[in-house]
């Protein structure tokens, strides 16, 4: 059975705003957030039969959009690194300019996320950007809470080392924010 325009319109009206707001908090700009919403709804259309049997459509959409957003962050970071190699003067569509302390930290945290494995990125994203509890995050990522704690500690330790070595350009504020949030 295929999704009709009316089916998707209803879903878009019901879930579009929530999903957009959530993706915007990760991507920090409307365009990327709308891309994430579009790609997520494209999957809804393509996987209509299985999607309809989901107990929580929003949780399903969270998973898809998380994967999309994290891919984009990683790609963006890769492009940024390449640009930095070729030109010191480039400014533009990289990370959005921070205008608050949290904004500053979030840029650094995104840069850190681009360097870690998929599972750790998903964990940090859910805890930091989505304000999920450890238990909710563990369910969403499919691991136990103790394992989640271990992955988190490993991530914080790695971040701390990067800060100590000065190799990442990571601001101390970002690490402090991470520790305050994630510990």
């Amino acid at each position: 059975m295929q999704a009709t325009e009316a089916d998707i319109r209803d879903l878009y009206q019901r879930y579009g705003g929530v999903l957009f707001h959530r993706c915007r908090s990760i991507m920090k700009n409307d365009e990327d957030a709308n891309d994430a919403v579009q790609e997520t709804f494209a999957r809804v259309i393509r996987n209509w039969d299985s999607f309809r049997s989901e107990a929580s459509p929003l949780t399903w959409m969270y998973r898809i959009s998380t994967n999309h957003c994290l891919n984009q962050i990683r790609n963006r970071q890769g492009r940024q690194a390449k640009r930095d190699q070729h030109s010191d003067a480039i400014v533009g569509d990289g990370f959005s300019r921070p205008d608050t302390e949290r904004g500053d930290n979030e840029s650094d945290i995104r840069a850190l996320l681009a360097q870690v494995d998929d599972q750790t990125r998903a964990i940090v994203t859910h805890l930091y950007f989505d304000d999920l509890t450890r238990e909710e995050t563990a369910v969403l990522v499919g691991i136990s809470v103790p394992t989640l704690r271990k992955r988190l500690n490993h991530f914080l330790e790695r971040s701390r080392k990067q800060l100590d070595s000065g190799s990442s350009g990571l601001a101390a504020g970002a690490l402090i924010a991470l520790i305050l949030v994630l510990k």
């Binding site: 949290r102 805890l127 989505d130 909710e136 949030v181 994630l182």
Partner: peptide, 17 residues
Amino acid sequence: MSFPINDGSRPSKLELG
């Protein structure tokens, strides 16, 4: 400025959604 981890004392954004 801190954003303490959600220990379940407040609804998460997913729950609010």
